[in-house]
Design a binder for these strands. Sequence first.
DNA 1: CTGTTAGCGCATTCAT
DNA 2: ATGAATGCGCTAACAG
Lengths: 322, 322
Amino acid sequence: MDVAKHAGVSLSTVSRVMNGNPTVDAALAGRVRDAAAELGYTASPLARSLVLGRTQTVAVVVPDLGNPTFQAVLRGLSRAAAADGYHVLIADSAEQVGEERVLAIETRRRTDGLVLCAPRMPEEELAALLPQVGPVVLVNRTLDGAPTIAAEYGTALRALAEHLHDLGHRRLVYLAGVARSASNAARLAALAEFRAAHPDVELTELASGVDFDSGAAAADAVLATRATGVLAFNDLVAMGLLSALADRGVRVPDDISITGFDDIPFARYTSPPLTTASVPAADLGARAWQAMTAALAGTDAASSVRLTPDVVLRGSTGPAPA
Amino acid sequence: MDVAKHAGVSLSTVSRVMNGNPTVDAALAGRVRDAAAELGYTASPLARSLVLGRTQTVAVVVPDLGNPTFQAVLRGLSRAAAADGYHVLIADSAEQVGEERVLAIETRRRTDGLVLCAPRMPEEELAALLPQVGPVVLVNRTLDGAPTIAAEYGTALRALAEHLHDLGHRRLVYLAGVARSASNAARLAALAEFRAAHPDVELTELASGVDFDSGAAAADAVLATRATGVLAFNDLVAMGLLSALADRGVRVPDDISITGFDDIPFARYTSPPLTTASVPAADLGARAWQAMTAALAGTDAASSVRLTPDVVLRGSTGPAPA
DNA sequence: CTGTTAGCGCATTCAT
DNA sequence: ATGAATGCGCTAACAG
């Protein structure tokens, strides 16, 4: 090392000083620090990682960096991690289910832990993967074997449905997302309960997607059901629908009420503003980091956190038309 | 190594096989590959990084992961990098100008290159930083000494202003973003040209911010100017303004025309849809990666790419009221 | 074509 | 309290 001779000490002493080891003479430590400052020296994170066995970095795998929900999770996680001196390696599977496994394993090898965000892969594959990539925390997907941070989608959707029911709506339609996804399954279960509790309600289920265009494309199908209330899979779908209905001269909420899901930042600014369920995605990310620190420390306890979203009532829902 | 003895060869041979070195006997290579597969062995990226001097990772520093523009840049960059087998380390400075420098240096040390996305730091600081962190590419911020990928904000804003002028608007207001930012400076220069070309236009400049709330907060000030056309700093500001005006019963575009900037995904779905300038942020990211590969290869040429945004005419602009 | 040796830059024994 | 070795896991240069 260069600073070593510059300060007239050995490599070990430099290392000790840089790591704040107290068993070094104050005077010597000062000399070393000065030398280091003068030469602008900082220990190579790479070499440290190799010898220490930790990289101070965690990996996050998301299905789509373009999705506001994952963005928010990433943001919350990233900031929380940064506050603890950790870095974040990001991987976007571009909704390619087949890529998830590879990305997870590969990024995990360069990091100390892995956050799997709403992985799309089938349950068996996920179950087989988890042991290979620990410490791992799951976001918005539950499975034994790893701490999970998830929003209770079912509860919230049920609440939205009840809200519409309270407003007098009796003919509803649910715009489903990706058919065999975990999040959709939770919602379907909640709707089944809702149906059971309210036999007087006619609830149609319509295939759809997870983005704007899916919502817009569903407009005619929705109108064909003559429903007065629509539960969209998420805010994006709701906004697309909103837009398509506006084009057709359908008034919201006078003619039809619409609810979204997620309360993305834009939901407040649509016309009318969207009634939706507030899933604090950034919180989700921060909690995920919390779980990760625990897992990293071995204080695992496989704690699972479930956040109950708030229902946010805004202008897109109103009394059912007479 | 374990696979070494398992295959009955030396460490070097294993290394050679794993790296596809053709100077190995086919039979031996087969044995090694089998052993590796059986033991599930993969070379440690960490150790490779240390000895090879490259990490196959680049760092991206953004001012705010919550900003749709940066999200899109990140997404485009991330996918392009992944296609080339590179990973992305992300850092969010949370708009803390002071943090940018530290984040840049720190993340750069764990990676092969750095992408600085619209850094807020003052010019001298940036100029001093660049040599320390090369290879580096700048996105949406120009400065000699590093390849730059930037959208031509000035040109596009000018085009939007001309569009309003063509529609008969003679009293305009510009909602400025962060006062002393590079992107705002470019826009101000373009507006100065516009003013010079159209002495008949009264163009007021109003301080504002870069987000929804700033736009909403500016509503009354905008109305006070009695302007018939508004050039918002970006789509977020425009949407906030749109929302606040709707609350006040002001009709868009009948009473007042509004333009945004960036063409974020949501701009198509406001009511009315937003006339804006299309800055293909994901493209920006992909180009940035392209520039990075060049820089990584030493084929630098410090090439600067400037993308000219398209003007997207939608419903939020119309003829000036009589 | 393959095995042996050295070293990437550091933290950490072990001696002193 | 400090310096001299040892090794983290791998690749490259050097023999054979």
